[in-house]
Design a protein around this nucleic acid. Structure first.
Lengths: 93, 93
DNA sequence: CAGTATCCAGACCGATACTG
DNA sequence: CAGTATCGGTCTGGATACTG
């Protein structure tokens, strides 16, 4: 099941951006070359469904939305860190 | 890049079986309902390429082949363990 | 037993256009 | 700004048949 998160394009990138404080869809999209709104929203919905991020809607005009890591999401990124660490070690051969 | 491992179907299952001592293609396939030889071999090739497992060929008749975790592979499964742990925690809600 | 080749359905993703 | 709908191309995986 977690492959459903890790396995699809952009997921990890999105999680990483949110963790770094880039929380609004527009901002995220501006950061990621090639990420369309459709795919971004698919990812965000999935991340919400898996309780990795949570969505907050501020009823303003224009609408403002923020995504934040949940507690579970914070545990999740420790795995991402391990993965990055491993990749580093792998590329060093 | 490691998403290429984690992200595709059956990869984690195969790694897990090898780690548990089920090292021969035939045996692996018998364990996994729905895994075809084509896909199994694709996975194994990928795992070898990423140096997670290594292949040993015993020049016998009938041919015998074994796949074993490399040192890197052993580090890799610590991540799998974390993932499983997380999934457990996730399903408990 | 180990491994490859081919064919095909479905998933995934990007482009585009559009709504609130 | 946030989000949905639709259409198509590409890539992945499953079924099957086959070779050494």
């Amino acid at each position: 099941m977690i492959e459903n998160i890790i396995g699809c394009k952009w997921s990890l990138t999105v999680i990483d951006l949110i963790r770094r404080g880039i929380k609004r869809p527009g901002a995220i999209q501006r950061e990621v070359e090639g990420l369309t709104t459709k795919v971004l929203n698919e990812r965000l919905r999935k991340l919400v469904r898996f309780e990795i991020v949570e969505k907050t809607i501020y009823p303003e005009n224009p609408p403002r939305v923020e995504y934040n890591l949940t507690r579970f999401g914070n545990e999740f990124i420790t795995i991402l860190d391990s993965i990055e660490e491993l990749e580093r070690r792998f590329s060093e051969n």
